[in-house]
Structures are given as structure tokens and as C-alpha cells.
Amino acid sequence: MSILQIVLFGLVGALLITSIREMAPQIAFWITLIVSVFLFLIALQKLTGLLAPIEKLAELANVNVLFFATIVKIIGIAYIAEFGAEIARDAGVSAIAGKIELVGKLAILVLAVPIVTAVVQTVTHLLP
């Protein structure tokens, strides 16, 4: 998939949305959603090729598997929360967008608790 195709796809979507918005605002929202979904799918496709080598590197560097899985999960949560928040903000409901971002941040914090405790344990081991 060449970058030109992807950019033009986004531009065609934007053109359609701007021309339909006055006629049927609800349908324009749906088009926004589906263009975002397709672009996100392409991003995921690129990411899958990137994630395997990084995992191999983490194995080589003897990084704990639990930490690596947690970080991948956190990245996923960040992407999906951003996606939902941007869609909601585009539809004109920034209150809901803010709540989606809040929930995403809290979910990331909950996932990060084991890593933080591990860091604290290491520090307390180092201290006499």
C-alpha cells in the first residue's frame, strides 16, 4: 500500500464529508467514522510488521515478558482512546471526548501499577 494511495484516500473522504455535511450531517458523521476506521486498519497493518522485531529485540535484551506485554497493551489503549476521543470531538461533543480520554488515562494507570511496584521494589533492594 503506497503512501500516496493512503493520503489520497483520506483526502477523498474529507472531500465527501465536507460536501455532504450540509445535506445530511448524520451521514457525514458516519463517513468520518468509516474513513477513520479504514485508515486505522492500515496503521495496524503497518504496526504488526513493526511489533515482531521489537519483541525480538526485547527478548535479546532480557526484558521481562510481562513488562513488554504491558507496554504493548498501553500503546493499544492509547491509540484506541485517541481514536474515540477524536471522533467524538469531531462530532461536536467534546464533553464525551474528554471522558473517553479520562477513561483511557485511568486504564493506562491501572496497567502501569505492576511496573511501578517493580521499580519501587528494585529501588528498595538497592537501598541498604
Binding site: 494511495q5 473522504g13 465527501l16 455532504i20 451521514i27 457525514a28 458516519w30 468509516i34 479504514f38
Partner: peptide
């Protein structure tokens, strides 16, 4: 890239409007 899906939705929207 499923451009035809987006055009389908746009056509449905215009026709409905």
C-alpha cells in the same frame, strides 16, 4: 483501501437527503 464503501455511503446519504 475500500474506497467503494465510502462512495456507497455518500450516495446513500445524498439520495436520502
Amino acid at each position: 483501501l475500500e474506497l467503494h464503501v465510502i462512495f456507497q455511503i455518500a450516495v446513500v446519504g445524498i439520495a436520502a437527503a
